[in-house]
Design a protein around this nucleic acid. Structure first.
Ligand SMILES: NC(=O)c1ccc[n+]([C@@H]2O[C@H](COP(=O)([O-])OP(=O)(O)OC[C@H]3O[C@@H](n4cnc5c(N)ncnc54)[C@H](O)[C@@H]3O)[C@@H](O)[C@H]2O)c1
Ligand SMILES: NC(=O)c1ccc[n+]([C@@H]2O[C@H](COP(=O)([O-])OP(=O)(O)OC[C@H]3O[C@@H](n4cnc5c(N)ncnc54)[C@H](O)[C@@H]3O)[C@@H](O)[C@H]2O)c1
Lengths: 252, 252
DNA sequence: AGGAGCTTGTGAACGTGAGAACAAAATCGG
DNA sequence: CCGATTTTGTTCTCACGTTCACAAGCTCCT
């Protein structure tokens, strides 16, 4: 509340062309839905059609789109190609983004083999690993290179996005190197909380967390009322009594 | 406002032991942080310590934990082992959940090779694929089985969680089969919006979307004010003019 | 025993997000 | 040219989530 002139309750905030985060997260879904419609030869779609294709409700979709501008036509709907272009431009996928992947193990290999990135908006410019045995291996039309080349590659290819698929242990160190080299957006698959300086964006993908969230809901579907019995509180902060061993491990 | 007796502003809602969704999503993070602390030999931790380890602010952490009960000690903090057990119990990872993975391609292989699930709370009971060439292949101590065996396996092993790593095309069909077989929680990696009946939970992991969200923020870091020029609106809903080809493709 | 010092648990204020509802704008048929 | 019909863009309201701030409660020291 220090700036932003005189803000009354008003709309969500929308700081000078700033789009609400929840909306930003849905734009890629709309983009994909539009592409699907386009591929089906559909030229115009109503908010209802689009909302169905994107799995949201139509009021939300219209409000989301309204943050970008007025790209629809009342009584008609949206021109699929035109809207697709507008969203792509807003997200920034009209240009190509250079990406490096660090840690070419199980997951790194899968990502490297994946054609979905290359096709649209993202270009993988390097696969990096610290393991000398992996360096030089060919994956598709790329070759695994030594992690030491990071700084050089980032500078040469103007890399702004880094993907971390190393084990949890070295992830923070790798992250620091990426940031120092000039990478300002990071997608992290390692199950650790990474800390980055201001100005660097970080997102994480965490399988174990997703499964655990599902487990929570699953538990309450079946058990419903019958939750496992709670062991009595420890008398004081006594040195941990014998509780069943349970997980959520650091390695998980 | 139809039910729930007389709801005044009151607390978030907390429908009869129901924990807010945002909190549920963070509990696994706390669980991991506690395991890390435990492994470092730390027996007691304050909300501040825990919050730092989990990458959230301490007020939020305390409020989250308060939904589970009063497991801390004022002036002291939380007993690490005890809290870890309580969270694990609440999430439901004190028991093992049987999981099937459908679609053993690049990503399915990576998941199958991953030790992180098996270690705690989740047990992969089958790897399924429709491709006869893959059926029979060994991955670790498991063997790829025919997708046709799904129903049998789900029943025998009481599978409640399914992971979909097939291409987008067959994903809905696979999903329907899973649901029909009795699976009530699904983790989907295919870039499509799956529809499921009430009572089935679904979560998605979508790489392209994550990257596109990063791209959005990246674009506004660099360009800041200088956004690419907007082409003029189409006069009417004329058949789509010549816009640059852009992505977010269905395959992505 | 009593007070000083910490740290939890929670009430209250604030901000963000979702959805219902509707006026405004466009098309179309007569 | 007008009224019926369709569908957007937006307003209003309620629900949810986050953060602050502080009383209550615990430990330890004197
Ligand atoms: N494989 C999965 O399905 C899966 C699922 C969920 C999470 N994860 C997480 O993803 C990450 C990768 O998993 P994985 O199965 O591919 O592991 P992995 O062990 O197969 O591969 C890790 C790779 O990182 C490389 N590496 C290690 N230290 C490095 C460093 N300092 N610099 C550069 N490279 C380094 C290793 O040489 C190895 O090639 C892990 O953190 C894991 O927890 C994996
Ligand atoms: N590989 C990645 O890094 C990556 C990244 C992001 C998203 N994805 C998505 O994850 C999914 C899998 O990717 P992938 O690279 O492993 O693909 P893939 O083509 O390597 O593997 C797909 C597997 O699914 C099997 N399959 C096809 N139809 C099936 C059916 N009806 N029933 C059972 N099995 C069937 C195929 O035989 C194949 O083995 C895709 O939807 C992809 O878009 C993958």
């Amino acid at each position: 509340m220090t700036r932003a002139s005189s803000r009354r309750p008003g709309p969500p905030t929308r700081t000078e062309r700033g789009i609400p985060e929840a909306t930003v997260a849905r734009l890629p879904v709309y983009l994909r839905a539009l592409t699907a419609l386009s591929d089906s030869g559909i030229a115009t779609a109503s908010s209802e059609d689009l909302a169905t294709a994107a799995g949201v409700n139509s009021a939300k979709l219209r409000k989301d789109l309204s943050y970008l501008g007025s790209y629809g036509t009342r009584g008609v709907g949206y021109d699929v190609e035109y809207l697709r272009y507008q969203i792509a431009r807003e997200i920034g996928v009209t240009q190509d983004w250079a990406v490096v992947i660090v840690g070419i193990g199980n997951l790194g290999h899968a990502l490297a083999n994946y054609s979905g990135f290359g096709t649209r908006g993202f270009r993988i410019v390097a696969l990096l690993d610290a393991d000398p045995k992996l360096v030089g291996e060919r994956i598709g039309d790329m070759e695994v290179r030594d992690f030491a080349e990071l700084e050089h590659i980032v500078e040469t290819d103007r890399v702004s996005i880094g993907v971390i698929t190393t084990p949890a242990g070295p992830a923070q160190e790798v992250c620091d190197r990426l940031v120092a080299a000039g990478v300002t957006s990071i997608l992290n698959f390692a199950p650790v909380v990474l800390s980055v300086p201001d100005g660097v964006d970080i997102r994480k993908v965490d399988l174990s967390i997703e499964l655990q969230i599902l487990a929570y809901h699953e538990q309450r579907k079946s058990g419903e009322v019958a939750l496992p019995q709670v062991p009595e509180l420890p008398a004081t902060n006594a040195l941990t009594p014998d509780l069943p061993a349970v997980g959520g491990g650091v390695i998980a």
